[in-house]
């Protein structure tokens, strides 16, 4: 199963990186969304996988009585999902605002911070 998941992760990463390399801000955003899924799957796979047994202790016991899925990566990913969603929402709004202010979705046209042919900084003290 890990082998298949590794291949899946590879494809997720390849697709997201291909999208991120684009010049269009919407495609970049889509890429970022997929990228976070790929990262989560990576963490998940690195913790090894077990089919269908959630890490929950039965009511009558103090410790799990059989092999369960690894709880640690799950705990890490759970918060990561929420945070990556927040960041994704932030990026989305940022992109939207940038589009409103600059009138373009092409990253080559977004040059407010680093204008082309910028003058030398002041040489005085």
């Amino acid at each position: 199963m890990e082998t298949i998941l590794a291949a899946t992760v590879a494809i997720f990463f390849a697709v997201s990186i291909y999208l991120i390399l684009s010049k269009h801000i919407i495609r970049i955003l889509l890429g970022v969304a997929i990228f976070s899924n790929a990262v989560n799957l990576t963490i998940f796979t690195a913790g090894r996988v077990v089919r269908e047994v959630p890490p929950i202790i039965p009511v009558e016991l103090d410790t799990p009585d059989r092999l369960t899925a690894n709880p640690l990566p799950q705990a890490l990913i759970l918060t990561a999902i929420v945070i990556s969603f927040s960041i994704f929402a932030f990026l989305l709004v940022l992109a939207f605002r940038a589009y409103q202010e600059l009138g373009t979705d092409d990253t080559d046209g977004m040059r407010v911070a680093e204008p082309e042919g910028e003058d030398l900084p002041p040489l005085g003290y």
Binding site: A6, I17, L21, T42
Partner: peptide, 18 residues
């Protein structure tokens, strides 16, 4: 090409980890 290389690299390293 770049995306495929990165994807393959990450996949391979994950496979190696497992």
């Amino acid at each position: 090409s770049i995306a495929s290389l990165c994807g393959a690299g990450l996949g391979l390293i994950l496979l190696r980890v497992t």
